[in-house]
Amino acid sequence: MTKAMSSPGETQHEYREIRGFASFDDPATLSYVDSNGKPNFELIRQTDEFRTLRRRLTTFVFPMTALFLTSYLTFVLLSAYAKDFVSTKVVGVINLGILLGLSQFVTSIIITLGYARYAKRRLDPQRKLLAEKTGVEE
């Protein structure tokens, strides 16, 4: 079996590559857990399921972190260096700075809920998939 043939069933193929030979054993009882019941983490790390999980996690958390840090530091820098701008009155005596500060509260809540939702829909099912494939529970 060559690599080019197996694009739909890539996970199976990759697993064989690591093992170095094709095996006829039942795949579920194979090698993700060693004889002492300890998970083979190196092998799990190289599965497509794990890679997908890692990619989904990092493509969410790093851009989000950059986003909220930028927004927070913009608020801080405006307050420090653009005093006249943030002192602009908007509603009664409430000025733009207070509103910008309160909007940080709102974005914090939105990002928090957004991540909780993303984790529930995109991360947790993928973790379950990985656990099923490897036969290793949490």
Binding site: P39, F41, I44, F50, L53, R54, T134, V136, E137, E138
Partner: peptide, 11 residues
């Protein structure tokens, strides 16, 4: 890496 990201083996 596997434990931190997937929780596998964490218990």
């Amino acid at each position: 890496e596997v434990r931190a990201i997937s929780g596998i083996g964490a218990k």
